[in-house]
Design a protein around this nucleic acid. Structure first.
Length: 99
DNA sequence: GTGGTGACGGGCC
DNA sequence: AGGCCCGCCACCA
């Protein structure tokens, strides 16, 4: 467990209800501007056991970036259930819901 | 050691 | 917006 990883966990858990943040943004706040891919890894491996709001993480274009159709649909549902508007192809208005 | 692989980002059309 | 390209970096076979 590196320092960066801990920071990422704290930041992600700190994203308020109804807001979203991009991978790169999280990485930057955690202290590594180029750590977006590492954030992805952390989400993949720890989102379940650490109970992370992984659905509040989207890419810099404001779109759900998950390749797995199944999980992408789940993320969309979770966001909508938080009052966030998500278009059918997975776009979120980042200027409204972004941090 | 080594090469392929992403739930990515940014720059440039 | 969206496509293409390249840089990045931990992970895994």
């Amino acid at each position: 467990m590196t320092q960066f990883t801990e920071e990422v966990l704290v930041i992600i858990k700190g994203i308020p209800y109804g807001r979203v943040m991009s991978y790169g943004r999280v990485a930057k706040l955690a202290g590594n501007t180029r750590g977006a891919r590492q954030v992805v890894r952390i989400l993949h491996s720890m989102s379940e056991k650490y109970n992370l709001p992984w659905h509040r993480i989207i890419n810099s274009k404001g779109k759900i970036s998950i390749t797995d159709k199944r999980n992408a649909a789940i993320q969309r549902e979770l966001l909508i259930s938080e009052g966030i508007k998500v278009s059918e192809d997975g776009y979120i208005d980042i200027s409204t819901y972004g941090i």
